[in-house]
Measured scan of single mutants.
Amino acid sequence: CHSECLGNCSQPDDPTKCVACRNFYLDGRCVETCPPPYYHFQDWRCVNFSFCQDLHHKCKNSRRQGCHQYVIHNNKCIPECPSGYTMNSSNLLCTPCLGPCPKVCHLLEGEKTIDSVTSAQELRGCTVINGSLIINIRGGNNLAAELEANLGLIEEISGYLKIRRSYALVSLSFFRKLRLIRGETLEIGNYSFYALDNQNLRQLWDWSKHNLTITQGKLFFHYNPKLCLSEIHKMEEVSGTKGRQERNDIALKTNGDQASCENELLKFSYIRTSFDKILLRWEPYWPPDFRDLLGFMLFYKEAPYQNVTEFDGQDACGSNSWTVVDIDPPLRSNDPKSQNHPGWLMRGLKPWTQYAIFVKTLVTFSDERRTYGAKSDIIYVQTDATNPSVPLDPISVSNSSSQIILKWKPPSDPNGNITHYLVFWERQAEDSELFELDYCLKGLKLPSRTWSPPFESEDSQKHNQSEYEDSAGECCSCPKTDSQILKELEESSFRKTFEDYLHNVVFVPRKT
């Protein structure tokens, strides 16, 4: 048989008469490798580009789960590009990614509803959504962080984005990388972005840091009482949809009607710091009717980097990364020049730590249904340095008659930039024990000054392991946590139920 035959053949030295091919099969003959313009397919066939392209389009058009959109890589027609490569849609070739590779997620039936953290986790790592997304989240724990972890990498949506009755959302900033909504599939009414009845939605994105392009379709905003109209108009300008909307697409009466839409800028007039305090004062603000001013709200939190936005980490279910302080308005003076500047002394802060701070007014709604208010920009203030805590785990070892090696770990709280350490030492008198000992005694162990690591005695271990207080009263049991108490109650309830079950099964009433 021919060298490319495997198993047997019907005619000697003829690659077209093989029972099976050793390498690849091409047009009725066995070959060692697939010549151009053919590609290896499933490690035994040679196919042309049209064959591989037909497989790709067949799966793409069917949208069946589990099928493969075949691509070409290293002269092979394979189910998908290997790690580190992405497909070129024009020629199906796998090309190296520039940075992290995109991950295209194809949605069944063309859309997916995100109504819980669990459903959001199914899209973790996706960068391109081939379909439409509907966000409908009523509640949950730590929602802002969970949504950002699972949806934060999405850069492109081919269909539309719909935010509907998501009472738990305060902001859409968890879509931190969303840059493009194509609108290839539109919501009824030709809408590519749809926001309806979101009672706590206050911000779409921080438009000073976020760009969003909507290729096709219109915007729809109705019944978002805490979303200011200025935020919607800003989205029109940034996304390129200005002029597409009709009169009733953006409701003037049901958007922002319960919001404090600040239209003035508060400026800080005085800032002073110490290692654990920050004193702030800002310019006074009074609405047209000074009785509408209820006070100020001061927001602050630790910020290692200057990239904080107002609604980071917030949701309507209680999660809030900001510390909020309510401040009463100052006494009002008739003389504008003698107006008191409101302020606040922030206490209990960490030394040498940068804080993000902003302040906003708290006002009631005027009778004319106009909203007044003022808010400052987010500023960054760093507390002063102070003395560091003591170095940890000092170790001293003498390696000769004239040297001592000293080692330690950095302090747990540096409280500033540590530039150097101060080492103090003092000579001590020799131990009298060394002169009084009889060095001729056998088995004498000389006193040693070398360091030995501390260890816990058996008594201390027994005390720590004991669940009861000892007789001397030195140790006591740790208080039980809520989960331990709940577990004990469940076990007790189970024992009672099981005992009742045994009584009912074992003891049967005697027939009379």
Rank of each mutant, 00 (worst) to 15 (best):
H106Q: 11
H106C: 00
L107H: 12
L107I: 08
L107V: 14
L107M: 10
L108D: 00
E109W: 15
E109L: 12
E109T: 13
E109S: 02
G110P: 07
K112V: 03
T113L: 06
T113K: 12
T113A: 08
D115N: 12
S116F: 01
V117Y: 06
S119H: 12
Q121N: 03
C126L: 01
T127N: 09
V128A: 10
I129W: 06
N130G: 02
G131Q: 04
S132Y: 03
L133R: 01
L133Q: 02
I134F: 07
I135L: 03
G140P: 15
N141R: 06
L143I: 12
A144L: 15
L147C: 04
E148L: 13
A149H: 08
L153V: 13
E155L: 10
I157F: 04
Y160H: 12
K162V: 14
K162W: 14
S166E: 05
S166H: 05
Y167S: 02
A168S: 04
L169Y: 07
V170W: 08
S171P: 00
S171G: 13
L172M: 12
L172P: 08
S173D: 08
S173W: 09
F174V: 08
F175S: 00
F175C: 02
R176T: 14
K177H: 09
R179T: 13
L180E: 14
I181G: 05
R182S: 09
R182F: 11
E184R: 06
L186M: 13
L186W: 10
G189W: 09
N190C: 15
Y191L: 10
S192N: 02
S192L: 04
S192Y: 04
F193A: 05
A195H: 07
A195Y: 04
A195R: 02
D197T: 06
D197S: 05
N198K: 03
N198P: 01
N198L: 06
N200A: 13
L201M: 05
R202F: 03
Q203Y: 15
D206R: 07
S208M: 09
S208V: 11
K209C: 08
K209A: 11
H210N: 07
N211T: 11
T213E: 11
T213F: 06
T213D: 12
I214T: 03
Q216A: 14
F220R: 14
F220S: 11
F221A: 12
H222E: 13
H222A: 08
H222L: 09
Y223S: 05
P225W: 05
K226W: 02
L227R: 00
C228E: 04
C228I: 02
L229Y: 13
I232M: 05
I232C: 10
H233F: 02
K234P: 01
K234S: 08
K234Q: 11
E236G: 04
E236L: 06
V238K: 15
S239W: 13
T241C: 05
T241K: 14
K242A: 07
G243T: 10
R244C: 09
R244E: 06
Q245N: 09
N248P: 12
D249N: 07
A251V: 08
A251E: 10
L252D: 10
L252E: 07
T254Q: 09
G256D: 01
G256I: 03
D257L: 09
Q258M: 05
S260T: 06
S260H: 05
C261N: 03
E262C: 05
L265C: 07
K267V: 12
K267S: 12
K267W: 11
I271A: 15
T273A: 04
T273E: 13
S274F: 08
K277N: 14
I278Q: 00
L280T: 13
L280Q: 00
R281M: 10
W282Y: 02
W282G: 02
E283M: 15
E283R: 13
E283F: 14
E283N: 13
Y285P: 00
W286V: 06
P287Q: 01
P287D: 02
P288Q: 13
P288K: 04
D289L: 01
R291W: 02
R291G: 01
D292I: 01
L294Q: 05
F299M: 07
K301W: 02
K301L: 09
E302V: 07
A303N: 07
Y305E: 04
Y305Q: 01
T309F: 14
F311H: 06
G313P: 04
A316P: 08
A316L: 10
S319F: 11
S319R: 11
S321P: 03
W322R: 03
T323W: 12
T323Q: 15
V324M: 07
V325T: 11
I327H: 07
P329F: 05
P329A: 08
P330W: 04
L331V: 13
R332Q: 14
N334R: 14
N334M: 10
D335P: 11
P336Q: 13
K337D: 15
K337F: 11
K337R: 06
S338C: 06
H341P: 11
H341E: 12
H341G: 12
H341D: 12
G343L: 08
G343P: 04
W344G: 14
W344C: 09
W344L: 12
M346A: 11
L349S: 03
K350Y: 12
P351C: 09
W352M: 06
Q354V: 06
A356N: 04
A356R: 12
I357M: 02
V359Y: 03
L362A: 03
T364Q: 01
T364S: 11
F365A: 14
D367P: 06
E368W: 02
R369I: 07
R369L: 07
R370H: 01
T371R: 05
T371W: 11
G373H: 02
K375Y: 00
S376L: 01
S376D: 02
D377F: 05
D377W: 14
I379S: 07
I379L: 10
I379W: 07
V381H: 09
T383Y: 02
T383F: 01
A385H: 06
A385E: 07
T386V: 07
T386Y: 12
T386A: 10
N387M: 15
S389V: 00
S389I: 04
P391Y: 04
L392Y: 10
L392C: 15
L392K: 11
D393A: 15
I395H: 13
I395K: 15
S398N: 02
S398F: 02
N399G: 14
N399Y: 12
S400G: 12
I404S: 00
I405G: 07
K407V: 05
K407H: 02
K409E: 06
P410H: 08
P410S: 15
